[in-house]
Computed example of a mutant assay.
Amino acid sequence: MRMPALAAVLVSMMPALAAAAPERRCGWLQNPTPANWWLEDRDGRWVLSVQGGPPVRGMDGVPDMTTRGWVATNGSYGYGCACFTLETEAASRRVLRVIAAEPLPLQRCRADRALPAPR
C-alpha cells in the first residue's frame, strides 16, 4: 500500500480510535417517559436511549434501577442516582456501550454539588 493510501486509511479509522477506555460515570439517571433514558453527570448529559430509536448497546443488561431509591414523577417513570461504566466518545458525549450499571442511594447524588438538579 502506498503511503498516501495508508494515511487515508488511518485517518478514516480515527473516529473509532477516539473511543476512550471504559469510564465510570455517576449522576442522575433519568427515565421521564418510555424508552427515554439518560445519565446526567458533572460533564453533561449522556443519552442511553431515545423513544423510537435503538438503545445503546448493553442497555438490555442494565439491572432494575429502582432498588436503591427512585423518585417517580410520571407513573413509574422518574429518576434515581446511579453509576454506569461506559464506552464513550467523550468529545461528543456519545455513549457507545453500557458495560455495567449500579443504582445508588439518592443521597449520594443529592450530596454531590457538581451535579445539576434532576429534571
Rank of each mutant, 00 (worst) to 15 (best):
P116D: 06
M14K: 04
E102I: 10
R2T: 11
C83S: 14
P34E: 00
P55W: 00
A21N: 08
A117P: 05
M59S: 05
T33M: 13
R24M: 14
M59V: 01
M3P: 09
L17F: 15
T67R: 12
A82M: 03
Q107F: 06
P22R: 04
A8C: 05
C109E: 05
L29W: 09
A114T: 12
R113W: 15
V71R: 12
L115K: 06
R45T: 12
E87R: 12
G75I: 08
A101T: 15
C26D: 15
A91F: 08
A5L: 11
A19Y: 05
R45N: 08
R97S: 02
G80N: 13
P4N: 11
A117F: 10
G53I: 00
A90Q: 12
L17C: 15
A7W: 13
P118M: 12
V71D: 08
L115C: 09
M13K: 04
P4H: 15
G53T: 01
C26I: 07
V50L: 02
T88C: 07
D43W: 09
D43T: 14
P116E: 13
N31D: 02
M3N: 13
Q51C: 01
A117D: 14
R24N: 11
R2S: 15
W37A: 02
M3C: 15
N74H: 12
G58S: 08
N36E: 13
N36Q: 10
A21L: 12
Q51M: 03
Q30K: 10
W46D: 05
R93I: 02
A91M: 13
M59H: 01
T85W: 10
E40C: 03
L86Y: 00
V50P: 00
P63K: 04
C26M: 07
V56N: 01
P63M: 03
G69A: 04
I99D: 01
Y79D: 13
V62F: 03
G44C: 09
A19S: 03
A111F: 06
R113P: 11
A111L: 03
T66Q: 13
Y77E: 08
M13Q: 11
L39H: 01
R68D: 03
E87A: 08
G75D: 08
P4F: 11
E102N: 13
E87I: 14
A21K: 14
R2I: 09
T73S: 13
A18V: 01
A7P: 00
E89Q: 13
S12Q: 00
L104C: 03
V56M: 02
P54V: 12
R45M: 09
V95N: 00
T33E: 11
L106D: 09
G52W: 00
V11A: 12
T73L: 10
G61D: 02
C26A: 13
Y77Q: 00
